[in-house]
Amino acid sequence: MDSLVVKKSLVDSLQASHSENDSGWILHHVMDGNYLDFSPFFKLYLPKIELLGFDISITRHVIFMWLAAILMFIVFTSVARSYKKSLIPKGSSNFWEVFILFVRDEIAKPTIGKGYEIFLPYLLTAFFFILFGNFLGLIPFSATFTSNIAVTATLATLSFIMIQFGGIKNHGFVGYFKGLVPHGVPIFLLPIMAIVEFLGLFTKPFALAIRLFANMTAGHIVIYALISLIFVMKSYLISPVSIGMALFIYSLEVLVALLQAYIFTMLSSLFIGMAVHQDH
């Protein structure tokens, strides 16, 4: 009883200090908001929209999501147009082709195998959506919408739907759920295995969502924390160190941005492949 009170007070004090010490600005920067933050210059407030009682305001992350979507549409329709002119890629088409071929030949083909073509549009869109989001987040004054749990959870949900779609399409509704439990399991283990495997269906996309969210959030938090070292120590002398380290983390973030887009797509593809080929 006593320890619980202690815990509660600890939490309270942490929360209190969090707002008192004004380190909340880190979370403010990382989290969603109803304004575009161009501080210290100005803040651009966005409209609030409500639909059937739901708050569907246009937020910072929505704006950058749309920006990524528009960029993607422009880039890839122009790539498609360049291919329509001639099969020989020119200019930036070469660059984007590398990624498209990578997703096709290194992610979708080996993990899904035969019939991978149906899932390719989803995997490509997810890959570039996350990639564009990650890189947009690295631009100053922008926000990383892929570091929002709502976004990653939605993406993971779509992956979940694709996984189930792949499984049901290949094995039928009943066959798919029957095949979830591997063959040769002793009878008395069957109920446990069924529950474990069924839970496994949901833990996979859950892990996808948390992984992307945590990776994209952590890097930004570390950068902000390193910058805030200057203010915590109240000294300019620390600034070369903290900026140098922040720069290092930033370069790491560039790597992470690429890697997380790859990992999300790779794992989605892998899970789809596992659902499509249940026997192994």
Binding site: D55, T59, A69, T125, F129, A150, T154, L158
Partner: peptide, 15 residues
């Protein structure tokens, strides 16, 4: 955030 999830779904599917 439900609103963001809604926009994400809409944006992603449209895209």
């Amino acid at each position: 955030d439900q609103g963001l999830a809604f926009w994400t779904t809409l944006t992603f599917l449209l895209l």
